[in-house]
Structures are given as structure tokens and as C-alpha cells.
Amino acid sequence: MKELRLYMAQRITALIMAPFVIGHLAVMIYAIQGGLSAAEILGRTQGSVLWFLFYGTFVVVVSIHGAIGLRVAASEWAGVKGVALEVFMWAVGLCLFYLGAQAVWAVTFAAGVGP
């Protein structure tokens, strides 16, 4: 029942993503009021457990959701099958996770703001 498990994983991550997307958009609209600067963003995120968990969880569910979705697209549009399809899915998922986790780590723990 691998298909069903993938389907459920994708639907459940979609459910989790919905409030995250709304929260993310709301913060974006709020944050750009009166201009936007790196210092302002980092002032909010650095050392914040709340924002680390918010964006950390967001990155995890996006990686799962996106990888499963692109697996279907690769299979139906590009005819990728078998082991190559699984490798593709894991590569997409891990890549999304690496990029997202790196960003979350940087805004939470990295020291200093560039000029």
C-alpha cells in the first residue's frame, strides 16, 4: 500500500502546511510595513525558539509534500519509473530539506548581519 501511504503523507502535510502558509503570508504583510531590512527580520528570528519551530516544521512538511508531488509529475510527464523514480523523490525531498534547513538555521543561530 505504498501508493496509499504516499497519498496520505501528501494530504496530511498539505493540512499542516495550510496554517503555516497563512501565517507566513500574514507575517510577510506585517513585516514589510514601513520598509524591510535584514536586521528587522533577524531581530525577530535570531534565537527565537518559536520561529525556529514554525519555519523548521514548515521546511519538513514542504520537503515531504513537494517530493511526493514531483514524484507524480516525474512519473506521468517524464516517464521516470522504478528505482530512478524513488531516487528522484528522495533527492528532491533531501534537497528541499537541506536548502530550507540551512536558511532556518542561518536566521536563527548565525551571528552578525552583513552591511
Binding site: M1, K2, E3, L4, L6, Y7
Partner: peptide, 12 residues
């Protein structure tokens, strides 16, 4: 339910 949950089933 098993038959429609497999490869090419309803989730496709």
C-alpha cells in the same frame, strides 16, 4: 479497498 489503494488505484 486493497485493490483501489495499490499502484494505479484511486489515489492516482
Amino acid at each position: 479497498l486493497d485493490a483501489v489503494s495499490g499502484k494505479g488505484g484511486c489515489h492516482t
